[in-house]
């Protein structure tokens, strides 16, 4: 479904992503892990179209995305959240989610309905009329997911949505992702919470210094010595 081909991103004096290649198949949940500064978020920005790669390309459902901006990529079915949350601060939670629904081609009334349904699904209905910037961080992260979900994506890029959540909330989020996945949504997930990612991911990619170090099923990746040294510090107990 998604194919990243030898993508390289150079910032001034810094190679953020270095010939990264990988694929995500339809229906998969793929985890993207790596230390801070490994280029995970930059890679998301390349896939969603906010950053143009210096070389390499991104294919989605067999089409080359190189000449498409973020808006068109979203309309093709790529939804994303931001690690540093970007709510439309002055708008209500409902209006935030409505923007997502409107770009699918729904009219305002229909979009409002879609937004309400989405908010309910994410347990945000109590905050429907709350102004977004007054939400606590954990809920703003959930709003990111709700907004992206309302665009009706086929592939969802989640950028550390579980940071700062308590174990119960993490469990809720994980089951939501699995539920949506069962309904056919594909996921590419950046996550620092290793336990969480190992529980849901079918495949895990390890990014280090902008390059894909290894990829494989979670069990294999955790055992790999390189990952342990780069990222995990020590072997983790299987969850």
């Amino acid at each position: 479904m998604l194919e990243v081909r030898a993508v390289t991103v150079d910032f001034v004096g810094l190679r953020a992503v270095d010939h990264a290649s990988f694929t995500v198949e339809k229906g998969q949940i793929v985890g993207l892990i790596g230390p801070n500064g490994a280029g995970k978020t930059t890679l998301f920005n390349v896939v969603s179209g906010l950053v143009r790669p210096s070389s390499g390309s991104v294919m989605f459902e067999g089409k080359d995305l190189s000449h498409l901006g973020p808006a068109d990529r979203n309309r093709m079915g790529i939804g994303r959240t931001f690690q540093v949350v970007k709510p439309f601060g002055g708008l209500t939670v409902l209006d935030n989610v409505m923007v997502g629904a409107l770009t699918r081609g729904q009219g305002p009334a229909e979009a409002r309905e879609t937004a309400r349904v989405t908010l309910k699904r994410l347990g945000l209905e109590r905050f429907t009329d709350t102004v977004a910037h007054s939400l606590p961080l954990a809920l703003r992260k959930r709003l990111e997911v709700a907004r992206a979900l309302a665009t009706g994506p086929k592939l969802m890029l989640l950028d550390e949505i579980m940071g700062g959540l308590n174990p119960t909330e993490v469990n809720e989020t994980l089951s939501l992702v699995q539920e949506l996945n069962a309904e056919g949504l594909t996921f590419l997930v950046i996550e620092h919470n290793m336990n969480a990612i190992m529980r849901i991911a079918e495949k895990v990619l390890v990014l280090n210094q902008g390059a894909v170090l290894i990829e494989g099923p979670p069990a294999v990746v955790t055992r790999d010595a390189q990952v342990i040294s780069v990222y995990l510090g020590e072997p983790i107990e299987s969850a």
Binding site: P70, A71, L91, V99, T151
Partner: peptide, 21 residues
């Protein structure tokens, strides 16, 4: 109207939600 306000509040987020700038 929604698109304009979304762009005003955060352009990158708006674009990623499919808003054409």
């Amino acid at each position: 109207g929604y698109y304009l306000v979304a762009l005003r509040e955060d352009e990158d987020a708006a674009r990623s939600l499919g808003v054409r700038v």
